[in-house]
């Protein structure tokens, strides 16, 4: 499980500022550019926009994003999460226990 439960904003595509349409070469080029910009402290690289608001961008996050997207299976997972809508607020009610016995395997 590489996508944190409530932190879809750390999706590697958001971190790099690209979409799942980006080729591996484009991802590497963008990652190298962002790392260089962060190293010299350019303001433009220090945050990234997401559907959940702006987030701070660090060199560690860029490296982690690149490592994730280099792995085909993990990239696929990131593509799936990229397209998911924002989470809805949870219901505020107690669980019902009507079928607990069945779920525990008792008949």
């Amino acid at each position: 499980m590489t996508v944190p439960l409530e932190d879809l904003a750390s999706n590697p595509f958001f971190v790099l500022g690209l979409t799942p349409a980006a080729s591996p070469l484009e991802l590497e080029r963008q990652g190298q550019k962002l790392l260089a910009m962060l190293q010299v402290g350019l303001e433009a690289a220090t945050s990234y926009p997401t559907p959940f608001g702006d987030h701070p961008r660090t060199a560690e996050a860029v490296r982690q994003a690149l490592a994730t997207l280099r792995d085909p299976a993990r990239r696929h997972e990131a593509e799936v999460w990229f397209d998911l809508p924002a989470p809805s607020p949870p219901p505020r009610q107690a669980p019902r226990w009507t079928d607990l016995r069945e779920r525990l395997g008792w008949r």
């Binding site: 439960l5 409530e6 989470p87 949870p90 219901p91 669980p95 525990l104 395997g105």
Partner: peptide, 27 residues
């Protein structure tokens, strides 16, 4: 494990987020 799968399913179904329910299903 059997008890945990059943118990967690109940809590997540009632009070979990959409993502948590999806993850529960995979786990």
């Amino acid at each position: 494990a059997m008890l945990e799968i059943a118990g967690t399913g109940r809590w997540v179904e009632e009070l979990g987020t959409q993502q948590e329910r999806q993850i529960y299903s995979e786990v």
